[in-house]
């Protein structure tokens, strides 16, 4: 994962994201309506910020041309089977899960602006769970700035690698 990713906040992308979370609020797709609101234009819905990954050239959860992909193709995975499941950043063997996510919004994210996401590691800890065996938690802090270098969003993400599939 790149330490710094600069990405455009595009109105079309906001529309697609809002559709994906089932949100038909016109402030996310109707520029004429959005003009009449207190924000004066299209804004991004909460959690949209995570799309920075689309602009990260090294993002591990996106297939890349010419590189093996861990999802299925002819077989159930495109990677050679390995003894160990606990590698990779959320990918390896499907043992990586998202445990927690927290956002602090310093102001709304507006269509048309350009943002820069800066990532740094946080804490790491382990825990024994009844449903998932041993779990390794890893925190990551992503601060998102505008082009005046003012902070817009602080995102704290905790991922977990479980030693086995979580019991249902």
């Amino acid at each position: 994962m790149a330490d710094e990713v600069t990405f455009p906040v595009e109105a079309g992308h906001i529309m697609l994201f809002a559709r994906a979370v089932g949100d038909e609020n016109p402030i996310y797709h109707d520029a004429e309506y959005a003009k009449t609101t207190e924000l004066g234009g299209i804004i991004a819905p909460p959690t949209f910020e995570r799309v920075w990954a689309q602009w990260d050239p090294a993002y591990v959860l996106r297939p890349k041309p010419g590189q093996p992909w861990f999802g299925s193709a002819a077989g159930p995975t495109g990677l050679p089977q390995k003894g160990s499941d606990d590698e990779g950043d959320g990918g390896g063997g499907g043992r990586g899960l998202h445990a927690e996510q927290r956002y602090v919004y310093h102001r709304p994210v507006l269509a048309g602006e350009t943002l820069t996401a800066r990532t740094r590691p946080g804490k790491t800890w382990t825990k024994e769970g009844k449903r998932a065996g041993s779990m390794t938690f890893r925190e990551q802090i992503i601060e998102i700035f505008d082009q005046q270098n003012e902070i817009v969003v602080t995102a704290t993400s905790v991922s977990v690698i479980t030693s086995r599939a979580v019991d249902q």
Binding site: H13, L16, F17, R19, A20, R50, V51, A53, Q54, Y59, L61, R62, P63, W69, F70, G71, S72, G75, P76, T77, G90, G91, G93, G94, R95, G96, R164, A165, V166, Q168
Partner: peptide, 22 residues
Amino acid sequence: GASGDYNPIHTDTPFAQEIAGY
């Protein structure tokens, strides 16, 4: 597609069942 998180565990049944064990 919208978020950019293409982890196959969310969209790929053979992977989710046979590799991840869900």
